[in-house]
Nucleic acid binder design. Structure first.
Lengths: 133, 133
DNA sequence: GGTAGACACTTGCAAAACGCAAGTCACTGG
DNA sequence: CCAGTGACTTGCGTTTTGCAAGTGTCTACC
């Protein structure tokens, strides 16, 4: 399902990355996945309150972008588990950059995710509160 | 300008960063500004072709978010020059993370910005004026 | 075996954002 | 006076978002 399906609107890596994950929700889903969540219900329960139709749509998009994979973990009422591919895990660097910027420039924010993903610089985000999100 | 003017939908730095620059165009504007562009016309001429109403809106949003500042460079037909604040320049780290990810995972993309600044040097991207992206 | 949940989604709209084209305003140059 | 440029603004149709409610399949309890 991927034989030259992409016309790039420009060769810029930033522009094309944003075409894939440049919306308000995709990276939050990746963040939660990186955090160890892996079911639809866990993802839907994040404190930002993603609408369920958006979540379903983002999961489809992220899957077809090769960022996550969907594997059944229960058969008869079919239930899927979502996990990051390497491509998805590599977004940890982007998440970390956002965490750093947000912590530095938006008062009241803390690092709740991505800290141990690709850089140990802020692995101390665990001693704080740990309500999911 | 930082006395709890906004209700954060969650304390997560990623979520709040995305509320500010989590759309398809804002970071491209920042990229161009980092690249040395600074007038409306230069920004509108980027290869991704941002619609002018979107550009005008993003410039307002980025200004009220403290990411850019607008200073007049011509008086009688008033013309403004847009430049990044430190907060805006610090988004270079995010851009760089996107460049890395895009180059690694999206075939056909190249780093047209932020790449030659390598790792930590983004913050010093002032007026180097490389080839426009 | 009937009712009550939970989980993983879908579906139906209304509201907002986006994107294209065209228009405006203040000048400059001929 | 008329064409043109730079910096926006306005109109309007399309797309995406967001809220609520609904569906289907099971498990739990009585």
């Amino acid at each position: 399902m991927s034989t030259r399906k992409t016309f790039l609107r420009s060769p810029c890596a930033v522009a094309n990355s944003l075409d894939v994950v440049g919306d308000k929700w995709s990276l939050l889903v990746v963040r939660d996945l990186l955090h160890g969540k892996h079911t639809y219900g866990e993802l839907a329960a994040s404190p930002e309150g993603i609408p369920t139709n958006i979540l379903a749509d983002r999961l489809k998009r992220l899957e077809s972008a090769g960022i996550i994979v969907r594997t059944p973990y229960h058969e008869r009422p079919i239930r899927y588990s979502y996990t990051l591919t390497q491509k998805g895990k590599d977004l940890g660097g982007v998440l970390l950059a956002f965490v750093r910027w947000g912590k530095q420039h938006i008062p009241g924010t803390v690092a709740l995710s991505a800290s141990q993903a690709s850089d140990g610089a802020m692995a101390s985000a665990k001693n704080s509160r740990h309500t999911p999100g």
